[in-house]
Design a protein around this nucleic acid. Sequence first.
DNA 1: GTCTATAAGGAGATAGAC
DNA 2: GTCTATCTCCTTATAGAC
Lengths: 205, 205
Amino acid sequence: MARMSSVDRRGEIVQAALRVISEQGVQGATTRAIVAEAGMPLASFHYAFASRDEMMEELIAHVVETQSIAAFEAIRFGADIRSTIRDGLQAFFDTIVADTAEEQVLFELMLFAMRTPGLESLPQRQWAKYRDAARQVLEAAAESAGIEWSVPIETVARMLITITDGLTLAWLADRDLAAAASVMDLAADSLYALTTPQPIKDAIT
Amino acid sequence: MARMSSVDRRGEIVQAALRVISEQGVQGATTRAIVAEAGMPLASFHYAFASRDEMMEELIAHVVETQSIAAFEAIRFGADIRSTIRDGLQAFFDTIVADTAEEQVLFELMLFAMRTPGLESLPQRQWAKYRDAARQVLEAAAESAGIEWSVPIETVARMLITITDGLTLAWLADRDLAAAASVMDLAADSLYALTTPQPIKDAIT
DNA sequence: GTCTATAAGGAGATAGAC
DNA sequence: GTCTATCTCCTTATAGAC
C-alpha cells in the first residue's frame, strides 16, 4: 500500500473508525483500534488528523452528510394508498432489521454529538434531513395515488419520522418482528386517515 | 460523615454516578469523577464494588427497576376521551422537557447496556415496563371515559410507546416545542380513532 | 474499616530515525 | 513522507499504613 493522498487517508481512517464503532461502540473507537482496523501504523492517524476529536468531528459530519434514509428508497408505489403506506413502512422496517448494527451506531453517534462541544447542532440537522426525506416520500406517494394530505405535509412528515424513530428504538430494544408489524398496521391506518381523495373539490353535503 | 453500611455506600455511589453521567455522559463516569461527586476517597469505591463494571451493572439494574414513566402519573382524566388523550400526551411531553437531561441519560444507558456483556437483555425489560405503564394508563383512560379500545390494548400500548419514543427523540434532537405539539395533535386523533363508545352493543345498521 | 500512596496498563499524542 | 519508539497523562485497581 504505497502512499496515498491526505484526503484518501482521512477517508480510509473514517471508514475504519465506522467499522470499529459498529462492532465495539463509540467507546471502543480508540486511535489504536482504528489504525489496526485500517492496517496502518499509529502515527499515520495523527499525520492525517490533528486529534481524535477532529476525526470524530469529520466522521459525524460525514455521516450526517451522506446518510439518507435508505429505507425510503426501497418503497414501491401502488394505486391503493393505504397499502402503499403499509408497504412503505414495511420496506423501511426491513431495512432497519437488515442494518440493525448500523442503525444503532447512528443513535450512538447522535448522543455522542450532543455531548461534544461544537457538535451539539448536528443531531438537529440530522433530524431535519430525516423530515425532508419523509416529506419527499409522502409527496411522491400522494402524487402516485392521486390523493392529498389533509394537514400540512411537514406535519405529516414529522408524524412519520416520529413513528419510524419509535419503531426503530423498540426494535433495538426487543427485536420483536410481530409487534412491529402490529404497530405498522395501526400507523398505516393513522396516516391513511390523513389523506383525502384528490383536490379539495369533494365537499360533504 | 461517619461509617455507613455497605448497602448505603453502594447506593450513594450509584446516585453520584447518575449525577456524573447526567452532566458528562457515560464516558465521563470514571471512578475518580464518581467518588469526587460523592465526596469520598477513591478506595471507598472498590471497597463497595469489586469493579466499575459491577457498579454500572447495579446502576442500570437500579434504573430499570425504579424508573417508571413518571410522565404518565401527571395525567388527569376527563370525560372527553379525545381531550384526555391529547392532555395526557402533553403531560408526558412536559415531563420530558422538564427532565431532558435525565431522559438523555436513559438513552445513553440503554445503548451502553446493549454493548455490555451480561446487560444486553435489560433494554428489552425496560421497554416491557414502558409498555406495561402505557397499558395501565390506557386502561384507566378507557374506564374513566367509558370507552373501549377497538384493537388489543397491548397493541395500542405499543403504538403509544412508539409515539412517545419518537417524540422524545425528536425533542432531544431539535428542541422544537411547536413541532411536538403538532405531532401530538395528530397522535391524539389517531389514538382516538381506536376507541369505541362503550360495550360492543352499538352496531351499525 | 478507612484512606494514602502506588502499581499496572491503556489512552492520545509526538520526537526523531529512516 | 512514513513509521518505530516513547512520552505523558489518566484510568482501574490494590497494597499496606493507620
